[in-house]
């Protein structure tokens, strides 16, 4: 969440349809900055959710409460492109008095964008950030933005709450799962979300208390990968598991 000044902003979470994001901008101000509420930026704990809530959803609520009067509106991804927790968060935010626009990313708005960052070479945290930036700025970065490479490893999952887990991966890691779907412009495409390259050593990551844990666990078993889930911050044992898997496979 990058907020450059004290003006009003439009918050969003998940991957709202570009059409609804456009409508929100028209309604609340074309020049208002769009900020991703999913991301942990150190907002104080609002204490409004129980402790066994997915940390990403807790970020959404904490960030919204923190920004409070500065939020002109929240564009909430409440469809299959996110999860039920996203739908419930939208409901809670509305009950708390926020202006909420709901978005479902319909199949007929699915895109087929090039997987430049997912199949490129470079630090994994940077490439995942670049993918998430395409939600609000879908300008084609061009093939030359990142050099493509043969993968040595795979990362499957959503952008984690704690990016330190991504720093352990080599630059030749390809990106799969929901994050890959975001780059393609197809959130909620379950078939694409479940795709991984056969035989590629892949870490299947899910936030704790997320329904995607079931997918990650199943896919890790099917593909001989490593299943990892993490709640708030990564700890020594999680990092060691990932590091060992990467070095030994």
């Amino acid at each position: 969440m990058k907020i450059s000044n004290n003006e009003k902003v439009i918050g969003y979470f998940g991957f709202p349809s570009r059409r609804i994001l456009g409508e929100a901008r028209k309604r609340y101000g074309e020049r208002l900055e769009l900020v991703d509420l999913d991301v942990a930026v150190g907002a104080p704990d609002s204490g409004l959710l129980n402790t066994t809530t997915c940390r990403i959803i807790a970020n959404v609520i904490d960030n919204a409460v923190y920004l409070s009067g500065r939020l002109a509106a929240v564009v909430a991804d409440v469809g299959e492109s996110k999860c039920d927790r996203g739908r419930h968060a939208a409901f809670l935010l509305r009950e708390m008095g926020f202006e909420v626009m709901e978005s479902r990313f319909p199949r007929d708005e699915f895109e087929n964008r090039d997987l430049i960052y997912s199949t490129g070479r470079g630090p994994l945290p940077d490439r995942i950030n670049a993918i998430m930036d395409t939600v609000v700025d879908p300008t084609d970065p061009g093939r030359e933005a990142v050099t493509s490479c043969e993968p040595t490893h795979g990362f499957w999952g959503v952008p984690p709450n704690d990016f330190r887990i991504l720093e352990v991966f080599p630059e030749t890691t390809h990106i799969f799962g929901w994050t890959r779907c975001v780059e393609a412009g197809r959130p909620g495409d379950l078939e694409m979300e479940c795709y991984v390259e056969e035989g590629l050593p892949t870490v299947f990551f899910a936030q704790s208390f997320c329904a995607k844990q079931d997918l990650a666990h199943h896919l890790a078993g099917r593909n001989n990968g490593l299943y990892v889930d993490c709640h708030r911050s990564v700890n020594h044992s999680i990092l060691s598991k990932v590091e060992a898997f990467i070095k030994l496979s």
């Binding site: 990092l239 060691s240 590091e243 060992a244 030994l248």
Partner: peptide
Amino acid sequence: RNELLALA
């Protein structure tokens, strides 16, 4: 060296 690598 992390523990899992040492064990392996």
